[in-house]
Simulated scan of single mutants.
Amino acid sequence: MANKSYSLAHTKWMCKYHIVFTPKYRRKEIYNQVRKDLIEIFKRLCKYKGVEIIEGHMMPDHVHMLVAIPPKIAVSTFMGYLKGKSSLMIFEKHAGLKYKYGNR
């Protein structure tokens, strides 16, 4: 796994990033059904962008991910995409969360 390199048109690359992020105010909402849905949403969104999830752990109040992001995508751009789209998809699927934690 450590020697696996990826390639674009004229480059070979191996860019792996350990990313940790939390919900707003470190609320402990990442468990049970929301956790299962988040795992599927993260997999789908990473697949859309061509990002490989090497390893991931979901704690009650934060998420650890080891991802291989292509050099053509900035890490901050990818994280903005991942957090923004996943929150919209979670609020769409679990409407009660938006009313509980929404516009305050």
Rank of each mutant, 00 (worst) to 15 (best):
A2F: 09
A2K: 07
S5A: 12
Y6P: 09
S7A: 14
L8C: 10
L8V: 07
L8P: 05
K12L: 09
K12D: 08
H18F: 10
V20D: 01
F21T: 03
P23F: 10
P23M: 04
P23W: 06
P23A: 02
E29Q: 13
I30R: 04
I30Q: 00
Y31Q: 10
N32W: 09
N32A: 13
Q33V: 12
R35I: 04
K36Q: 13
D37Y: 12
I39Y: 10
E40C: 11
I41N: 01
F42E: 01
F42A: 08
F42C: 09
K43H: 09
K43R: 10
R44E: 13
C46A: 05
K47N: 14
Y48S: 15
K49P: 00
V51W: 05
I53A: 05
I53K: 06
I54S: 10
I54D: 09
E55V: 07
G56T: 09
H57L: 11
M58N: 02
M59E: 10
M59I: 05
P60Q: 06
D61A: 00
L66V: 05
A68Q: 12
I69S: 03
P70T: 05
P71W: 05
K72D: 09
I73H: 11
A74S: 14
V75H: 03
S76I: 01
T77V: 11
T77N: 09
F78M: 01
M79H: 09
Y81W: 02
L82C: 02
K83G: 01
K83E: 01
G84P: 00
K85I: 14
S86M: 05
S87Q: 08
S87K: 10
S87E: 02
L88S: 11
M89C: 01
I90F: 03
I90L: 11
H94F: 14
H94L: 01
A95S: 15
A95Y: 07
G96A: 11
L97I: 07
K98H: 07
Y99S: 15
K100S: 08
Y101H: 13
N103A: 13
